[in-house]
Design a protein around this nucleic acid. Structure first.
Lengths: 199, 199
DNA sequence: GTCTATAAATCGATAGAC
DNA sequence: GTCTATCGATTTATAGAC
């Protein structure tokens, strides 16, 4: 055990930096397995001081999940997601999802690991379902418009699409070569196949 | 809280049935958030009786993970996975992965959620890495043999392939229509695209 | 904004009777 | 194979001084 982070901070922390530290701990240990003691140690302050900034462990989780969700939902209002053929809009959103995931990696990672034990977690699951529902509707639209090869089942395709995109959090780490082209690479894999046969 | 299962059993349980109950609880609440008290309540016996069958909470987890891993590794020794073109062997394994996932759903689900807090979890992560490594090697082989369209990066493709397949545990539930064709459906999505353009 | 000290509950695990 | 009872450690959270 004790895979915790160093705890470098010296004095005078704001909510923002504490949230960042907390999300990092939640990810490496899991939300439930992380104690407020773990969090304060990682931040370099006492447990009591941490409670001065956040009312509870759950409030901390809520703040992190809100950040991830706002980034994702903002995608749906972009011009590229609201005009043009359904298939092109879908491709735009998929690229955007990967970009958000890269930019807010820890927050999105936490969101995707939520299971529904507390009220906050159930709220986050609802929000995720709403987002996925928007994607599924767009997939149906593209299938019905004949933009997609016949025989593709919309509900299944939407689920596999979300699964493919979200799986990126399992291995992507910032600052490595190829990060810039990842949104396009993932989109290509989704629409043309991960392993398309030659010829 | 308290999303626990009913707890119907009356008397005389074996390890097998207790393990099944425990895995179910681990999945709905998360391993760390599930107490031995939760487990015994769900099984309809006391905490102390549960310890008569399993030495510790971690031993319970270990037994569950071993079951999932044995099912997956067995795939690599099947005839269809050891002879023929690399791309065909890959497709055979992908179909097999989905089938194992359907047959041992709770155990594989638990395996895919492991994060590395305890020695048992780190062991399971190692095993997963070994399995994924075999898949990645096969992907490289197929790319180098020219069986796959030029420009596909083997390391990325292997990761996306695993991500796509494993994401099935997030939504698949047994006993629903279309379950029989799922292995083929997922393989088609992986090799020909989730949403291939018409024409 | 940080600290020490502690309350109240729950955790994993054990002892020992039946 | 099940039970009651309990140990010692750890949990989230609060009180109150500086």
């Amino acid at each position: 055990m004790s895979t915790g982070t160093a705890g470098r901070r010296v004095r005078g922390q704001g909510r923002e930096s504490l949230l960042e530290v907390a999300v990092g701990e939640f990810i490496t240990r899991g939300y439930d397995a992380t104690s407020m003691e773990d969090l304060s140690r990682a931040a370099g302050i006492t447990k009591s001081s941490f409670y001065h900034h956040f009312a509870s462990k759950e409030a901390l989780l809520r703040a992190a999940l809100e950040r991830a969700l706002s980034g994702l939902f903002a995608l749906l209002d972009e011009p590229g997601a609201t005009a043009g053929p359904a298939l092109a809009r879908l491709r735009h959103i998929v690229r955007g999802q990967v970009a958000v995931l890269q930019g807010d990696l820890p927050y999105v990672t936490l969101l995707l690991r939520v299971r529904g034990n507390t009220a906050t977690e159930r709220w986050a699951l609802e929000q995720r379902r709403a987002f996925d529902g928007q994607i599924a509707a767009l997939v149906r639209e593209a299938v019905e418009a004949g933009e997609i090869r016949a025989g593709v089942e919309p509900a299944l395709a939407a689920r596999l699409l979300s699964g493919l995109v979200n799986s990126v959090v399992e291995w992507y780490r910032p600052g490595r070569p190829g990060a810039g082209s990842l949104p396009d690479d993932v989109a290509r894999a989704a629409f043309e196949g991960i392993l398309p046969a030659a010829g």
